[in-house]
Structure formats: structure tokens, C-alpha cells
């Protein structure tokens, strides 16, 4: 999936995460994370964002995320929303 423009989703309210996805000239997914639970979960949050993007076929992107204690499904949902906005794609293949 190709990132065409800056895509943003989520908020900085409690239990949410704000994710900004930008195009990048470099190969790979670069993630800058700021989190209220950085020490315990920083690595895990970054991994989840990276996995989510990779599973959608993203090879290169710059991601900025501000986490306010979001749990996994929220992180995944926000990453997908930001990504689909960045890729300007409306159709998502929902799984049963």
C-alpha cells in the first residue's frame, strides 16, 4: 500500500492514541513514539503499529504517535484509520 499524503487518526484523550503517518523516501517504517506507558509498553506499541502497517503491505513510512494509554485494539484501529487516510483508500476488506 502506498502512502500518498499525511494521514492522521485518533486523539490525545485518555485511553486513545494519536497516530500520524507520513510518506518517507527511506525504506522501512520509522516510528517516533511518545507514551504515558513508555517504559513498560513502548516497544510493544511500536511493534503493533509496525505489524499493522506491514500487514497492509506498507514498506516505507514515517510514523509519529502520541499514546495516552491505548490498549491494543485501539492502537490497531487508529493505525488502520491513519493508514487508509494516508493512502486515500476507502475500501477495507473486513474479516468475519
Amino acid at each position: 500500500m502506498e502512502i500518498k499524503k499525511v494521514g492522521v487518526a485518533g486523539t490525545v484523550e485518555s485511553s486513545d492514541i494519536n497516530i500520524v503517518i507520513e510518506p518517507s523516501d527511506k525504506k522501512g517504517i520509522e516510528i517516533e513514539l511518545q507514551s504515558t506507558v513508555m517504559k513498560q509498553f513502548g516497544r510493544q506499541i511500536k511493534n503493533l503499529i509496525e505489524e499493522t502497517l506491514k500487514s497492509e503491505g506498507v514498506e516505507s513510512a514515517v510514523v509519529r504517535a502520541t499514546d495516552k494509554g491505548a490498549i491494543d485494539f485501539v492502537i490497531k484501529a487508529r493505525a488502520l484509520t491513519a493508514l487508509y487516510r494516508a493512502a486515500e483508500i476507502n475500501e477495507y476488506s473486513w474479516e468475519a
Binding site: 487518526a9 485518533g10 491494543d72 485494539f73 485501539v74 490497531k76 484501529a77 487508529r78 488502520l80 484509520t81 487508509y84 487516510r85 476507502n90 477495507y92 473486513w94
Partner: peptide, 15 residues
């Protein structure tokens, strides 16, 4: 609308 749909979908799948 898109972000709420993703959020509720993932919540129902997980919670």
C-alpha cells in the same frame, strides 16, 4: 465516520 467504524469493529473483535 471511518475512524469510529474501525474502532468499534476492532472492539467487537477483541473485547
Amino acid at each position: 465516520k471511518d475512524s469510529a467504524r474501525f474502532l468499534v469493529y476492532n472492539a467487537l473483535k477483541t473485547m
